[in-house]
C-alpha cells in the first residue's frame, strides 16, 4: 500500500515536470498548425480550429529546405568522421603508448577546454580569409579532423585505458598492426563511448549557428540553423511575422534531432552502466 502511494506521488511529480518540459514544444506544434488570423488572436488560443498541414508544405517550399539539409548533412557527416578518427587515434596514443612529453601535451590539450572561442576567433578568421575559406563549408568541419574536440579525446582515452592488456597482446601475436588494434579492438570494444562522441558531435554540429554566421554569406551554403535564423526576418509579411511558418520550419529542423536522440538515448542516458568491460 505504502509502496503504491509512493509510486503514485513519484509519477505525479515526474509527469508535472514532463509537462513543463513539453509545453514549449506543444506551443510550437500547435502554432505551426494555425492560420495567420488564429496566430494573432487575442486572447491566444491553444488549439487551431482546423490543423493547417499546408503550413508545412509552404514552409518547405518558401524555404529551400533540401539545399540547407544537404549543407547541414555534409557538415555533420564530415564533422563526425573527422572527430571519430582524430579522437580515436589520439585517445589510443594517450591511453596506451609511452612517449616523452605525453603528459605535458595531454595537460596542455585539456587546458584548452577553458579557453573561450572568442580569444582565437579573430586570428582564426584572418587565417581562413587567407586560405580562401570564407564562403565555404571548410570552417565547419576541418577543425573536427584536427582533434579540436578535446572532450571526445578525453572520454575515449578513459574508456581505452580500461581495456585489458590481454586483448592488445593477443592481437599483436596475431600480427595485427597498430591501426587494426585501434579500430578492430579498442573502437569495437568501446561502442557506447564512441556512440556518445558521435551523438554529441552530431548535436553540436547540427545546431551550430555561430560558425556559419561568421564565415558564410552565400545563401547557397547556409546550414539549417542559419537558414532558420535568416528565415525569421524573411517571414515578416505585410501584416507581421508569419509565426505559423516559422514554427513549421522550426519543427522541420527539430524533428530529425528528436529521432536521432530517441534511438540513441538509451546508450548515453541509460545503458552506459550496462557495458561489459568496466572493472
Amino acid at each position: 500500500m505504502k509502496q503504491h502511494f509512493r509510486s503514485v506521488v513519484a509519477h505525479a511529480c515526474l509527469s508535472s515536470g514532463a509537462l513543463l518540459m513539453l509545453i514549449p514544444l506543444a506551443w510550437m506544434i500547435l502554432t505551426s498548425l494555425k492560420t495567420f488570423t488564429e496566430v494573432y488572436r487575442e486572447p491566444p488560443v491553444w488549439l487551431p480550429q482546423k490543423p493547417m498541414w499546408s503550413n508545412y508544405v509552404e514552409a518547405l517550399t518558401s524555404f529551400d529546405f533540401a539545399l540547407y539539409l544537404r549543407n547541414s548533412l555534409v557538415v555533420v557527416i564530415l564533422a563526425i568522421t573527422g572527430t571519430f578518427l582524430s579522437s580515436a587515434m589520439a585517445a589510443y596514443a594517450f591511453a596506451r603508448l609511452r612517449a616523452k612529453g605525453k603528459e605535458a601535451f595531454f595537460i596542455l590539450l585539456l587546458s584548452t577546454m577553458m579557453l573561450p572561442a572568442q580569444v582565437t576567433v579573430i586570428p582564426v578568421f584572418r587565417m581562413y580569409v587567407s586560405f580562401g575559406w570564407i564562403n565555404t563549408l571548410y570552417p565547419m568541419f576541418v577543425p573536427a579532423w584536427l582533434g579540436v574536440n578535446v572532450f571526445a579525446i578525453f572520454l575515449l582515452r578513459q574508456f581505452f585505458a580500461s581495456i585489458p592488456q590481454d586483448y592488445v597482446d593477443s592481437a599483436r601475436i596475431d600480427g595485427a598492426s597498430e591501426w587494426a588494434i585501434i579500430f578492430r579492438v579498442f573502437v569495437a570494444l568501446s561502442k557506447p563511448a564512441i556512440l556518445t562522441v558521435i551523438v554529441f558531435t552530431f548535436m553540436g554540429s547540427w545546431n551550430d549557428l555561430w560558425t556559419p554566421l561568421l564565415f558564410v554569406h552565400d545563401q547557397q551554403l547556409y546550414t539549417l540553423p542559419l537558414a532558420l535564423f535568416c528565415f525569421l526576418s524573411k517571414t515578416i509579411g505585410v501584416r507581421g511575422v508569419q509565426w505559423e511558418l516559422m514554427m513549421a520550419a522550426s519543427a522541420i529542423v527539430i524533428i530529425p534531432l528528436i529521432v536521432v536522440f530517441f534511438f540513441s538515448q538509451r546508450y548515453f542516458v541509460e545503458g552506459i552502466t550496462m557495458t561489459g568491460l568496466k572493472a
Partner: peptide
C-alpha cells in the same frame, strides 16, 4: 521521462 527531460537540451538555439 528521461528522454523528455533531456529533450530541450538537444534543440538548436535558433529553434
Amino acid at each position: 521521462y528521461r528522454t523528455v527531460y533531456f529533450l530541450p537540451a538537444i534543440l538548436p538555439a535558433t529553434a
